[in-house]
Design a protein around this nucleic acid. Structure first.
Length: 491
RNA sequence: GUCCCUGUCGUCUAGCCCGGUCUAGGACACCGCCCUUUCACGGCGGCAACACGGGUUCGAAUCCCGUCAGGGACGCCA
Protein backbone atom coordinates (compact mmCIF):
# COMPACT_ATOMS: atom_id res chain seq x y z
CA UNK A 1 0.00 0.00 0.00
CA UNK A 2 1.78 3.03 -1.23
CA UNK A 3 -0.69 5.79 -0.37
CA UNK A 4 -1.62 6.21 3.28
CA UNK A 5 -4.60 4.19 4.39
CA UNK A 6 -7.71 6.20 5.19
CA UNK A 7 -10.91 4.34 5.97
CA UNK A 8 -14.20 5.17 7.59
CA UNK A 9 -17.31 3.80 9.16
CA UNK A 10 -20.46 5.60 8.10
CA UNK A 11 -23.42 4.59 10.25
CA UNK A 12 -26.77 6.23 9.91
CA UNK A 13 -28.27 7.19 13.25
CA UNK A 14 -31.56 5.37 12.88
CA UNK A 15 -30.90 2.94 15.70
CA UNK A 16 -28.30 1.74 18.18
CA UNK A 17 -25.02 0.40 16.82
CA UNK A 18 -25.91 -2.91 15.17
CA UNK A 19 -23.50 -5.82 15.40
CA UNK A 20 -23.22 -5.81 11.62
CA UNK A 21 -22.21 -2.18 11.60
CA UNK A 22 -19.96 -2.81 14.56
CA UNK A 23 -18.16 -5.50 12.64
CA UNK A 24 -17.77 -3.27 9.60
CA UNK A 25 -16.41 -0.61 11.94
CA UNK A 26 -14.06 -3.13 13.51
CA UNK A 27 -12.65 -4.35 10.20
CA UNK A 28 -12.08 -0.78 9.06
CA UNK A 29 -10.47 0.02 12.36
CA UNK A 30 -8.28 -3.08 12.26
CA UNK A 31 -7.26 -2.30 8.71
CA UNK A 32 -6.38 1.25 9.66
CA UNK A 33 -4.44 0.23 12.75
CA UNK A 34 -2.63 -2.55 10.94
CA UNK A 35 -1.49 -0.17 8.24
CA UNK A 36 -0.92 2.75 10.60
CA UNK A 37 -3.62 4.60 8.76
CA UNK A 38 -6.52 6.82 9.73
CA UNK A 39 -9.98 5.75 10.84
CA UNK A 40 -12.76 8.26 10.35
CA UNK A 41 -16.28 8.37 11.74
CA UNK A 42 -18.93 9.81 9.49
CA UNK A 43 -22.55 10.08 10.50
CA UNK A 44 -24.93 9.64 7.58
CA UNK A 45 -27.80 11.63 8.95
CA UNK A 46 -29.28 13.16 5.83
CA UNK A 47 -32.59 11.39 6.26
CA UNK A 48 -34.12 13.65 8.85
CA UNK A 49 -37.18 11.51 9.27
CA UNK A 50 -35.16 8.52 10.41
CA UNK A 51 -32.19 10.07 12.13
CA UNK A 52 -32.33 10.71 15.83
CA UNK A 53 -29.96 12.62 18.05
CA UNK A 54 -30.02 9.94 20.75
CA UNK A 55 -28.67 7.38 18.32
CA UNK A 56 -25.82 9.64 17.29
CA UNK A 57 -24.75 9.60 20.93
CA UNK A 58 -25.48 5.94 21.41
CA UNK A 59 -23.46 4.91 18.37
CA UNK A 60 -20.47 6.91 19.50
CA UNK A 61 -20.80 5.49 22.98
CA UNK A 62 -20.84 1.94 21.63
CA UNK A 63 -17.84 2.52 19.38
CA UNK A 64 -15.99 3.99 22.31
CA UNK A 65 -17.03 1.11 24.52
CA UNK A 66 -15.65 -1.31 21.95
CA UNK A 67 -12.44 0.67 21.90
CA UNK A 68 -12.77 1.53 18.22
CA UNK A 69 -11.39 5.01 18.56
CA UNK A 70 -11.63 7.22 15.51
CA UNK A 71 -8.96 9.65 14.44
CA UNK A 72 -11.23 12.10 12.67
CA UNK A 73 -14.83 13.09 13.03
CA UNK A 74 -17.57 12.62 13.68
CA UNK A 75 -18.31 14.26 10.37
CA UNK A 76 -22.00 14.92 9.93
CA UNK A 77 -23.37 14.69 6.43
CA UNK A 78 -26.16 17.01 7.45
CA UNK A 79 -23.58 19.78 7.90
CA UNK A 80 -21.92 19.37 4.55
CA UNK A 81 -24.52 20.98 2.35
CA UNK A 82 -22.07 23.40 0.78
CA UNK A 83 -19.68 20.60 -0.15
CA UNK A 84 -22.48 18.71 -1.84
CA UNK A 85 -23.66 21.85 -3.61
CA UNK A 86 -20.24 22.24 -5.18
CA UNK A 87 -20.20 18.70 -6.50
CA UNK A 88 -23.82 18.86 -7.60
CA UNK A 89 -22.92 21.90 -9.64
CA UNK A 90 -19.95 20.08 -11.10
CA UNK A 91 -22.08 17.11 -11.98
CA UNK A 92 -24.82 19.26 -13.44
CA UNK A 93 -22.38 20.50 -16.05
CA UNK A 94 -21.31 17.02 -16.92
CA UNK A 95 -22.96 15.43 -19.93
CA UNK A 96 -23.13 12.22 -17.91
CA UNK A 97 -26.38 13.30 -16.34
CA UNK A 98 -29.79 14.42 -17.52
CA UNK A 99 -32.84 15.88 -15.86
CA UNK A 100 -35.69 13.53 -15.11
CA UNK A 101 -39.18 14.94 -14.75
CA UNK A 102 -40.93 11.74 -13.70
CA UNK A 103 -42.64 12.08 -10.34
CA UNK A 104 -42.00 9.62 -7.52
CA UNK A 105 -45.58 8.40 -7.90
CA UNK A 106 -45.18 7.71 -11.59
CA UNK A 107 -41.97 5.82 -10.93
CA UNK A 108 -43.47 3.77 -8.14
CA UNK A 109 -46.34 2.80 -10.41
CA UNK A 110 -43.94 1.64 -13.12
CA UNK A 111 -41.94 -0.34 -10.62
CA UNK A 112 -45.02 -2.15 -9.41
CA UNK A 113 -46.05 -2.90 -12.93
CA UNK A 114 -42.63 -4.38 -13.73
CA UNK A 115 -42.74 -6.50 -10.61
CA UNK A 116 -46.23 -7.69 -11.55
CA UNK A 117 -45.07 -8.51 -15.06
CA UNK A 118 -42.14 -10.40 -13.53
CA UNK A 119 -39.90 -8.20 -15.59
CA UNK A 120 -36.58 -6.77 -14.46
CA UNK A 121 -37.18 -3.74 -12.28
CA UNK A 122 -35.51 -0.85 -14.08
CA UNK A 123 -36.02 2.75 -14.95
CA UNK A 124 -37.66 2.79 -18.36
CA UNK A 125 -35.53 5.66 -19.65
CA UNK A 126 -38.52 7.90 -20.12
CA UNK A 127 -36.53 11.13 -19.75
CA UNK A 128 -33.24 9.84 -21.08
CA UNK A 129 -33.52 11.32 -24.53
CA UNK A 130 -36.02 14.11 -24.27
CA UNK A 131 -35.85 16.75 -26.95
CA UNK A 132 -35.21 20.32 -25.85
CA UNK A 133 -38.86 21.03 -26.66
CA UNK A 134 -40.10 18.27 -24.38
CA UNK A 135 -37.89 19.51 -21.59
CA UNK A 136 -39.15 23.01 -21.96
CA UNK A 137 -42.66 21.74 -21.93
CA UNK A 138 -42.11 19.85 -18.68
CA UNK A 139 -40.39 22.87 -17.19
CA UNK A 140 -43.37 24.99 -18.07
CA UNK A 141 -45.65 22.50 -16.40
CA UNK A 142 -43.65 23.34 -13.32
CA UNK A 143 -42.37 19.80 -12.90
CA UNK A 144 -39.26 19.69 -10.71
CA UNK A 145 -36.35 17.79 -12.19
CA UNK A 146 -34.15 15.24 -10.50
CA UNK A 147 -30.76 14.46 -12.00
CA UNK A 148 -30.15 11.00 -13.40
CA UNK A 149 -26.83 9.57 -14.39
CA UNK A 150 -26.55 8.37 -17.95
CA UNK A 151 -24.92 4.95 -17.70
CA UNK A 152 -22.89 4.33 -20.85
CA UNK A 153 -22.66 1.11 -22.83
CA UNK A 154 -20.15 -1.43 -21.68
CA UNK A 155 -19.44 -2.99 -18.35
CA UNK A 156 -18.25 -1.87 -14.97
CA UNK A 157 -15.65 -3.78 -13.04
CA UNK A 158 -13.43 -3.51 -10.03
CA UNK A 159 -11.12 -5.66 -8.00
CA UNK A 160 -12.78 -6.50 -4.71
CA UNK A 161 -10.26 -7.08 -1.95
CA UNK A 162 -12.40 -9.89 -0.56
CA UNK A 163 -14.35 -11.23 -3.52
CA UNK A 164 -11.85 -10.68 -6.27
CA UNK A 165 -12.77 -9.59 -9.78
CA UNK A 166 -16.27 -8.15 -9.88
CA UNK A 167 -17.97 -7.05 -13.05
CA UNK A 168 -21.36 -6.53 -14.47
CA UNK A 169 -22.79 -5.29 -17.75
CA UNK A 170 -23.84 -1.67 -17.63
CA UNK A 171 -27.27 -2.33 -19.02
CA UNK A 172 -28.01 -4.08 -15.75
CA UNK A 173 -27.18 -0.88 -13.97
CA UNK A 174 -29.93 1.64 -13.87
CA UNK A 175 -29.87 5.29 -14.82
CA UNK A 176 -30.27 6.03 -11.14
CA UNK A 177 -30.95 9.40 -9.56
CA UNK A 178 -27.95 11.26 -8.20
CA UNK A 179 -29.55 14.53 -7.26
CA UNK A 180 -33.06 14.84 -5.92
CA UNK A 181 -35.52 17.36 -7.29
CA UNK A 182 -34.77 19.51 -4.24
CA UNK A 183 -31.10 19.65 -5.20
CA UNK A 184 -29.75 17.35 -2.49
CA UNK A 185 -27.60 14.35 -3.37
CA UNK A 186 -28.94 10.83 -2.96
CA UNK A 187 -27.05 8.28 -0.91
CA UNK A 188 -24.80 6.96 -3.65
CA UNK A 189 -23.78 10.41 -4.76
CA UNK A 190 -23.27 11.79 -1.26
CA UNK A 191 -21.25 8.74 -0.41
CA UNK A 192 -18.97 9.26 -3.39
CA UNK A 193 -18.56 12.94 -2.64
CA UNK A 194 -17.67 12.27 0.97
CA UNK A 195 -15.39 9.35 0.32
CA UNK A 196 -13.51 11.36 -2.24
CA UNK A 197 -13.56 14.63 -0.38
CA UNK A 198 -12.40 12.94 2.81
CA UNK A 199 -9.62 11.19 0.95
CA UNK A 200 -10.68 7.62 1.61
CA UNK A 201 -8.21 5.09 0.25
CA UNK A 202 -10.39 2.05 0.90
CA UNK A 203 -14.08 1.49 1.36
CA UNK A 204 -14.75 -1.56 3.51
CA UNK A 205 -18.44 -2.25 3.99
CA UNK A 206 -21.14 -4.89 4.00
CA UNK A 207 -21.92 -7.12 1.10
CA UNK A 208 -25.32 -5.47 0.78
CA UNK A 209 -23.50 -2.57 -0.90
CA UNK A 210 -22.10 -4.57 -3.78
CA UNK A 211 -24.53 -3.17 -6.32
CA UNK A 212 -23.99 0.34 -4.99
CA UNK A 213 -20.33 -0.05 -5.68
CA UNK A 214 -20.93 -0.39 -9.41
CA UNK A 215 -23.14 2.66 -9.31
CA UNK A 216 -20.64 4.64 -7.34
CA UNK A 217 -17.87 3.73 -9.72
CA UNK A 218 -19.99 5.25 -12.46
CA UNK A 219 -20.29 8.43 -10.44
CA UNK A 220 -16.54 8.59 -9.97
CA UNK A 221 -16.26 8.23 -13.72
CA UNK A 222 -18.83 10.95 -14.40
CA UNK A 223 -16.94 13.28 -12.08
CA UNK A 224 -13.62 12.17 -13.52
CA UNK A 225 -12.35 11.07 -10.11
CA UNK A 226 -10.24 8.14 -9.04
CA UNK A 227 -12.33 5.65 -7.02
CA UNK A 228 -10.95 4.12 -3.83
CA UNK A 229 -10.30 0.40 -3.42
CA UNK A 230 -13.31 -1.62 -2.34
CA UNK A 231 -13.71 -4.56 -0.01
CA UNK A 232 -17.03 -6.15 0.83
CA UNK A 233 -17.72 -8.12 3.95
CA UNK A 234 -20.03 -11.12 4.17
CA UNK A 235 -23.24 -10.49 6.05
CA UNK A 236 -23.81 -11.81 9.55
CA UNK A 237 -26.70 -14.27 9.69
CA UNK A 238 -28.99 -15.24 12.54
CA UNK A 239 -29.36 -18.84 13.76
CA UNK A 240 -32.07 -19.45 11.14
CA UNK A 241 -29.79 -18.40 8.33
CA UNK A 242 -31.33 -15.06 7.44
CA UNK A 243 -29.67 -11.68 7.85
CA UNK A 244 -29.43 -11.04 11.57
CA UNK A 245 -32.17 -8.84 12.94
CA UNK A 246 -34.10 -8.01 16.07
CA UNK A 247 -36.20 -11.11 15.88
CA UNK A 248 -33.07 -13.18 16.44
CA UNK A 249 -32.64 -11.55 19.83
CA UNK A 250 -29.92 -9.11 20.76
CA UNK A 251 -28.48 -7.23 17.81
CA UNK A 252 -27.19 -3.97 19.17
CA UNK A 253 -23.90 -3.51 20.92
CA UNK A 254 -25.54 -1.86 23.93
CA UNK A 255 -27.61 -4.95 24.50
CA UNK A 256 -24.52 -7.11 24.65
CA UNK A 257 -22.98 -4.63 27.01
CA UNK A 258 -25.86 -4.86 29.43
CA UNK A 259 -25.99 -8.63 29.15
CA UNK A 260 -22.52 -8.71 30.65
CA UNK A 261 -20.19 -9.11 27.73
CA UNK A 262 -16.75 -7.54 27.77
CA UNK A 263 -15.96 -5.10 24.99
CA UNK A 264 -12.91 -7.09 24.09
CA UNK A 265 -14.98 -10.26 23.80
CA UNK A 266 -17.11 -8.52 21.20
CA UNK A 267 -14.04 -7.34 19.33
CA UNK A 268 -12.42 -10.76 19.40
CA UNK A 269 -15.63 -12.55 18.45
CA UNK A 270 -16.59 -10.18 15.66
CA UNK A 271 -13.06 -10.32 14.31
CA UNK A 272 -13.35 -14.09 14.10
CA UNK A 273 -16.75 -13.91 12.48
CA UNK A 274 -15.65 -13.95 8.87
CA UNK A 275 -11.94 -13.69 9.40
CA UNK A 276 -9.30 -15.93 10.84
CA UNK A 277 -5.61 -15.46 11.46
CA UNK A 278 -4.87 -18.61 9.45
CA UNK A 279 -3.72 -20.65 12.40
CA UNK A 280 -5.57 -22.08 15.37
CA UNK A 281 -5.55 -18.99 17.53
CA UNK A 282 -8.97 -17.89 18.75
CA UNK A 283 -8.58 -16.13 22.06
CA UNK A 284 -6.52 -13.17 20.97
CA UNK A 285 -5.50 -9.82 22.33
CA UNK A 286 -6.29 -6.63 20.51
CA UNK A 287 -2.70 -6.23 19.41
CA UNK A 288 -2.51 -9.76 18.10
CA UNK A 289 -5.61 -9.20 16.02
CA UNK A 290 -4.31 -5.92 14.62
CA UNK A 291 -1.00 -7.55 13.86
CA UNK A 292 -2.49 -10.50 11.98
CA UNK A 293 -5.39 -8.77 10.31
CA UNK A 294 -5.69 -8.66 6.55
CA UNK A 295 -8.59 -8.39 4.13
CA UNK A 296 -7.21 -11.26 2.08
CA UNK A 297 -8.07 -13.59 4.93
CA UNK A 298 -11.70 -12.54 5.13
CA UNK A 299 -13.89 -15.54 4.37
CA UNK A 300 -16.44 -14.61 1.68
CA UNK A 301 -19.29 -16.76 2.95
CA UNK A 302 -21.87 -15.49 5.41
CA UNK A 303 -21.30 -16.56 9.00
CA UNK A 304 -23.96 -17.37 11.58
CA UNK A 305 -23.81 -15.46 14.84
CA UNK A 306 -23.32 -18.10 17.54
CA UNK A 307 -24.14 -16.78 20.99
CA UNK A 308 -22.86 -19.91 22.72
CA UNK A 309 -19.42 -19.37 21.35
CA UNK A 310 -19.63 -15.71 22.26
CA UNK A 311 -20.38 -16.70 25.81
CA UNK A 312 -17.52 -19.14 25.95
CA UNK A 313 -15.18 -16.50 24.63
CA UNK A 314 -16.38 -14.06 27.26
CA UNK A 315 -15.52 -16.59 29.95
CA UNK A 316 -12.08 -16.99 28.45
CA UNK A 317 -11.44 -13.28 28.56
CA UNK A 318 -12.86 -12.89 32.05
CA UNK A 319 -10.47 -15.57 33.28
CA UNK A 320 -7.56 -13.81 31.66
CA UNK A 321 -8.37 -10.50 33.30
CA UNK A 322 -6.47 -8.83 36.05
CA UNK A 323 -8.77 -9.01 39.13
CA UNK A 324 -8.60 -5.25 39.59
CA UNK A 325 -9.83 -4.69 36.06
CA UNK A 326 -12.48 -7.30 36.60
CA UNK A 327 -13.83 -5.41 39.58
CA UNK A 328 -14.13 -2.33 37.43
CA UNK A 329 -15.92 -4.28 34.73
CA UNK A 330 -18.25 -5.79 37.29
CA UNK A 331 -19.06 -2.52 39.03
CA UNK A 332 -21.89 -1.24 36.82
CA UNK A 333 -23.64 -4.59 36.92
CA UNK A 334 -23.39 -4.91 40.68
CA UNK A 335 -24.53 -1.35 41.18
CA UNK A 336 -27.41 -1.68 38.74
CA UNK A 337 -28.58 -4.76 40.56
CA UNK A 338 -28.57 -2.79 43.79
CA UNK A 339 -26.07 -5.10 45.45
CA UNK A 340 -23.53 -2.47 46.28
CA UNK A 341 -22.44 1.09 45.58
CA UNK A 342 -19.38 2.54 43.89
CA UNK A 343 -18.27 3.95 47.24
CA UNK A 344 -18.57 0.58 48.94
CA UNK A 345 -16.55 -1.08 46.20
CA UNK A 346 -13.90 1.58 46.55
CA UNK A 347 -13.64 1.31 50.31
CA UNK A 348 -13.65 -2.49 50.43
CA UNK A 349 -11.34 -3.08 47.50
CA UNK A 350 -9.28 -5.79 49.19
CA UNK A 351 -12.41 -7.67 50.08
CA UNK A 352 -13.74 -7.23 46.54
CA UNK A 353 -10.53 -8.80 45.28
CA UNK A 354 -11.24 -11.86 47.39
CA UNK A 355 -14.76 -12.13 46.02
CA UNK A 356 -13.66 -11.64 42.46
CA UNK A 357 -10.80 -14.10 42.74
CA UNK A 358 -13.16 -16.72 44.12
CA UNK A 359 -15.69 -16.18 41.35
CA UNK A 360 -13.50 -15.36 38.37
CA UNK A 361 -13.18 -18.81 36.82
CA UNK A 362 -16.89 -19.41 37.22
CA UNK A 363 -18.12 -16.37 35.34
CA UNK A 364 -19.17 -16.46 31.72
CA UNK A 365 -21.06 -13.21 31.79
CA UNK A 366 -20.32 -10.28 34.05
CA UNK A 367 -23.93 -10.51 35.13
CA UNK A 368 -23.24 -14.01 36.45
CA UNK A 369 -21.77 -12.25 39.47
CA UNK A 370 -25.22 -10.91 40.16
CA UNK A 371 -27.08 -14.15 39.58
CA UNK A 372 -24.50 -16.42 41.18
CA UNK A 373 -22.71 -14.27 43.68
CA UNK A 374 -25.35 -12.04 45.21
CA UNK A 375 -24.93 -13.77 48.57
CA UNK A 376 -21.56 -12.09 49.02
CA UNK A 377 -23.36 -8.78 49.15
CA UNK A 378 -26.74 -9.46 50.68
CA UNK A 379 -28.47 -11.72 53.17
CA UNK A 380 -31.55 -11.54 51.08
CA UNK A 381 -31.49 -14.76 49.13
CA UNK A 382 -33.56 -17.91 48.87
CA UNK A 383 -32.44 -21.47 49.36
CA UNK A 384 -32.28 -23.55 46.23
CA UNK A 385 -35.28 -25.85 46.24
CA UNK A 386 -33.49 -29.00 45.29
CA UNK A 387 -30.81 -28.16 47.78
CA UNK A 388 -33.35 -27.86 50.55
CA UNK A 389 -34.75 -31.22 49.67
CA UNK A 390 -31.40 -32.87 49.52
CA UNK A 391 -29.48 -31.15 52.31
CA UNK A 392 -31.86 -29.51 54.75
CA UNK A 393 -34.44 -32.23 54.86
CA UNK A 394 -31.83 -34.85 55.40
CA UNK A 395 -31.68 -36.54 58.79
CA UNK A 396 -29.19 -34.77 60.99
CA UNK A 397 -29.01 -31.54 59.02
CA UNK A 398 -29.85 -29.43 62.02
CA UNK A 399 -27.30 -31.20 64.17
CA UNK A 400 -24.67 -30.66 61.54
CA UNK A 401 -25.40 -26.95 61.40
CA UNK A 402 -25.55 -26.66 65.17
CA UNK A 403 -22.22 -28.42 65.37
CA UNK A 404 -20.76 -26.02 62.86
CA UNK A 405 -22.18 -23.04 64.68
CA UNK A 406 -20.41 -24.17 67.79
CA UNK A 407 -17.17 -25.10 66.07
CA UNK A 408 -17.00 -21.81 64.19
CA UNK A 409 -18.18 -19.92 67.23
CA UNK A 410 -15.21 -21.19 69.16
CA UNK A 411 -12.81 -19.59 66.72
CA UNK A 412 -12.00 -16.00 67.62
CA UNK A 413 -12.76 -13.51 64.91
CA UNK A 414 -9.10 -12.67 64.45
CA UNK A 415 -8.30 -16.31 63.72
CA UNK A 416 -11.24 -16.99 61.45
CA UNK A 417 -9.10 -18.13 58.53
CA UNK A 418 -9.49 -20.63 55.77
CA UNK A 419 -7.18 -23.04 57.54
CA UNK A 420 -8.79 -22.74 60.94
CA UNK A 421 -12.34 -23.11 59.70
CA UNK A 422 -11.43 -26.04 57.50
CA UNK A 423 -9.67 -27.79 60.35
CA UNK A 424 -12.61 -27.11 62.62
CA UNK A 425 -15.05 -28.62 60.17
CA UNK A 426 -12.95 -31.67 59.47
CA UNK A 427 -12.33 -32.31 63.15
CA UNK A 428 -16.02 -32.01 63.80
CA UNK A 429 -16.73 -34.54 61.07
CA UNK A 430 -14.14 -36.89 62.45
CA UNK A 431 -15.50 -36.65 65.96
CA UNK A 432 -18.93 -37.67 64.77
CA UNK A 433 -17.70 -40.25 62.30
CA UNK A 434 -19.34 -38.48 59.39
CA UNK A 435 -17.86 -37.53 56.08
CA UNK A 436 -16.89 -33.87 55.80
CA UNK A 437 -19.33 -33.61 52.91
CA UNK A 438 -22.15 -34.09 55.41
CA UNK A 439 -21.21 -30.74 56.86
CA UNK A 440 -19.98 -29.01 53.77
CA UNK A 441 -23.13 -29.28 51.68
CA UNK A 442 -25.63 -28.01 54.24
CA UNK A 443 -23.17 -25.29 55.18
CA UNK A 444 -22.92 -24.14 51.59
CA UNK A 445 -26.66 -24.04 51.26
CA UNK A 446 -26.99 -22.13 54.52
CA UNK A 447 -24.34 -19.62 53.56
CA UNK A 448 -25.14 -19.10 49.88
CA UNK A 449 -28.53 -20.57 49.19
CA UNK A 450 -26.87 -22.48 46.39
CA UNK A 451 -25.55 -25.96 45.79
CA UNK A 452 -22.53 -24.87 43.83
CA UNK A 453 -19.93 -22.17 43.99
CA UNK A 454 -16.36 -21.44 45.05
CA UNK A 455 -14.53 -23.58 47.57
CA UNK A 456 -16.60 -23.50 50.75
CA UNK A 457 -13.79 -22.27 52.98
CA UNK A 458 -13.19 -19.40 50.62
CA UNK A 459 -16.83 -18.52 50.97
CA UNK A 460 -16.66 -18.88 54.74
CA UNK A 461 -13.72 -16.54 55.14
CA UNK A 462 -14.95 -14.02 52.61
CA UNK A 463 -18.26 -13.78 54.42
CA UNK A 464 -16.55 -13.60 57.80
CA UNK A 465 -17.36 -15.05 61.18
CA UNK A 466 -20.34 -12.94 62.07
CA UNK A 467 -22.21 -13.45 58.84
CA UNK A 468 -21.48 -17.15 58.83
CA UNK A 469 -22.79 -17.68 62.33
CA UNK A 470 -25.76 -15.56 61.51
CA UNK A 471 -26.63 -17.45 58.37
CA UNK A 472 -26.17 -20.79 60.05
CA UNK A 473 -28.68 -19.73 62.71
CA UNK A 474 -31.03 -18.55 59.99
CA UNK A 475 -30.80 -21.89 58.28
CA UNK A 476 -31.45 -23.78 61.49
CA UNK A 477 -34.49 -21.65 62.05
CA UNK A 478 -35.60 -22.25 58.49
CA UNK A 479 -35.27 -26.01 58.80
CA UNK A 480 -37.12 -26.07 62.08
CA UNK A 481 -40.01 -24.33 60.45
CA UNK A 482 -40.04 -26.41 57.29
CA UNK A 483 -43.53 -27.70 56.57
CA UNK A 484 -43.72 -31.47 56.57
CA UNK A 485 -43.26 -33.08 53.20
CA UNK A 486 -46.64 -33.50 51.64
CA UNK A 487 -47.60 -36.56 49.78
CA UNK A 488 -47.89 -36.06 46.06
CA UNK A 489 -51.27 -34.55 45.46
CA UNK A 490 -52.94 -33.25 42.42
CA UNK A 491 -54.33 -30.08 43.94
C1' G B 1 -39.29 -11.98 -11.22
C1' U B 2 -34.15 -10.00 -12.57
C1' C B 3 -29.13 -9.60 -11.19
C1' C B 4 -25.09 -10.68 -7.82
C1' C B 5 -22.52 -13.42 -3.98
C1' U B 6 -21.71 -17.91 -1.28
C1' G B 7 -21.63 -23.44 -0.36
C1' U B 8 -15.80 -28.06 4.49
C1' C B 9 -18.58 -31.21 11.15
C1' G B 10 -25.20 -28.47 14.14
C1' U B 11 -22.09 -23.54 14.49
C1' C B 12 -17.21 -20.56 13.71
C1' U B 13 -13.23 -22.06 10.80
C1' A B 14 -7.95 -24.23 8.70
C1' G B 15 -6.90 -26.48 4.13
C1' C B 16 -8.56 -24.34 -1.81
C1' C B 17 -5.04 -19.45 -5.22
C1' C B 18 0.35 -23.11 -5.93
C1' G B 19 -4.02 -30.64 -7.12
C1' G B 20 -0.90 -35.85 -3.94
C1' U B 21 1.78 -34.47 2.89
C1' C B 22 -6.28 -34.73 4.22
C1' U B 23 -7.74 -42.19 6.61
C1' A B 24 -9.75 -33.41 6.20
C1' G B 25 -6.88 -30.10 11.45
C1' G B 26 -8.66 -26.66 15.47
C1' A B 27 -12.66 -24.31 18.37
C1' C B 28 -17.91 -23.82 20.36
C1' A B 29 -21.94 -26.94 21.60
C1' C B 30 -23.08 -32.03 22.91
C1' C B 31 -21.71 -37.00 25.26
C1' G B 32 -18.34 -39.96 28.37
C1' C B 33 -14.15 -40.35 31.90
C1' C B 34 -10.53 -37.98 35.29
C1' C B 35 -9.62 -34.03 38.98
C1' U B 36 -12.89 -32.53 43.24
C1' U B 37 -16.58 -30.78 49.35
C1' U B 38 -20.19 -28.62 45.15
C1' C B 39 -20.24 -25.63 40.75
C1' A B 40 -16.88 -24.00 37.51
C1' C B 41 -11.92 -24.32 35.59
C1' G B 42 -8.56 -27.85 33.71
C1' G B 43 -7.06 -32.71 31.47
C1' C B 44 -8.25 -36.99 28.43
C1' G B 45 -11.52 -39.36 24.94
C1' G B 46 -15.94 -39.55 21.69
C1' C B 47 -19.73 -37.89 18.09
C1' A B 48 -19.63 -35.09 13.62
C1' A B 49 -18.25 -32.18 7.38
C1' C B 50 -15.55 -31.56 1.76
C1' A B 51 -24.07 -29.86 -0.93
C1' C B 52 -25.10 -33.01 -5.41
C1' G B 53 -23.88 -34.59 -10.51
C1' G B 54 -20.62 -34.53 -14.44
C1' G B 55 -15.84 -33.66 -16.38
C1' U B 56 -10.03 -32.70 -16.44
C1' U B 57 -6.06 -35.71 -14.21
C1' C B 58 -2.21 -41.37 -12.62
C1' G B 59 -4.56 -38.59 -8.54
C1' A B 60 -9.54 -33.37 -6.65
C1' A B 61 -12.01 -30.66 -0.65
C1' U B 62 -8.53 -28.27 -3.93
C1' C B 63 -9.19 -26.91 -11.36
C1' C B 64 -13.74 -26.56 -15.06
C1' C B 65 -19.13 -27.03 -16.10
C1' G B 66 -24.07 -27.89 -14.48
C1' U B 67 -27.79 -28.61 -10.70
C1' C B 68 -29.56 -27.58 -6.08
C1' A B 69 -29.57 -24.80 -1.66
C1' G B 70 -28.76 -20.34 1.26
C1' G B 71 -28.06 -15.17 1.38
C1' G B 72 -28.12 -10.23 -0.66
C1' A B 73 -29.54 -6.21 -4.01
C1' C B 74 -33.25 -4.31 -7.13
C1' G B 75 -36.13 3.72 -3.82
C1' C B 76 -35.90 11.25 -5.38
C1' C B 77 -33.74 5.28 2.24
C1' A B 78 -29.02 4.85 3.98
Amino acid sequence: MTSPVRVRIAPSPSGHLHVGTARAALYNWLFARHHKGTFVLRIEDTDKTRSEEQYVDSIQASLTWLGLNWDEGPVFQSQRGDVYDRYVEKLRHSDSVYPCYCTPDELAAKREQQLADKAPVRYDGHCRDLTPEQRTSYEEEGRPAALRIRIPEGETSYQDLVYGEMKRPNDELDDFICVRADGTPTYNFACVIDDHDMGMSHVIRGNDHQVNTFKQIQIYRALDLEPPRFAHLPLILGPDGSKISKRHGATSVTEFESMGYLPHTMVNFLALLGWSPGDDREVMTRDEIIESFSLERVNPSNPVFDQQKLQWLNGEHIRRMNPNDLINALRPHLVDAGLTTPLEIETRWAWMLEVVTAMQERLHLLTDMVTQGAYFFTDDFRYDEKGVKKQFRREGAIDALKGLAQAFGNIPDSEFTKERTETALRELAESTGEKPARYIHPLRLALTGMTGGPGIFDVVTILGRARCLDRIQQAIHFIENLPPVEAESGS
